[in-house]
């Protein structure tokens, strides 16, 4: 692949669709197979594809390592926040039905969606960080 034209062009076309597909899997966790972890893995795969096609330098300009360090903990924070909100509203940790929303079904739907987003962010960030570290280990 000394001239990467074809792989690069195809990656350019595919990456946005892969990212949207990952978010679709995230949002349809209740209706089909999927959920936060799978969505995070697919989203991470799109970034891995970017690194493979365009190289690490260009990827580092686009996706900052610091942002991923931040996101790793931000995902856990979202997860914990949803859990604690349930406790503040009078239930147990992650007992969604106690959230102050009109119906119990809506409450548990939004609660699960919230923690899935947290899981998604953490999984994406951790996977990308692992990949960056493994790909760069020869540089030290």
């Amino acid at each position: 692949m000394n001239e990467h034209v074809i792989v690069q062009t195809i990656s350019k076309i595919l990456i946005p669709f892969i990212q949207l597909y990952a978010l679709y899997v995230l949002a349809h966790g209740e209706l089909g197979p999927g959920g936060g972890f799978q969505a995070g893995a697919i989203f991470g795969a799109s970034i891995v594809l970017y690194v493979l096609a365009f190289g690490m330098k260009s990827a580092k300009l686009r996706f900052k390592s610091k942002v991923f360090d931040f996101l790793t903990s931000a995902g856990v924070f979202i997860f914990a926040t949803v859990g604690v909100l349930c406790m503040i509203a009078g239930g147990a940790f992650l007992q969604y039905s106690s959230l102050p929303l009109p119906t119990k079904k809506l409450a548990s739907g939004i609660g699960i969606y919230g923690i899935e987003i947290g899981v998604f962010i953490t999984v994406t960030a951790v996977l990308v960080t692992i990949f960056f570290e493994t790909a760069e280990q020869d540089d030290d």
Binding site: M1, V51, L52, G55, M56, A59, F131, T134, A135, E136, D138
Partner: peptide, 11 residues
């Protein structure tokens, strides 16, 4: 895998 074969690294 092809990239690793060719350049010996992933990035």
């Amino acid at each position: 895998f092809l990239k690793y074969r060719e350049t010996g690294r992933l990035d």
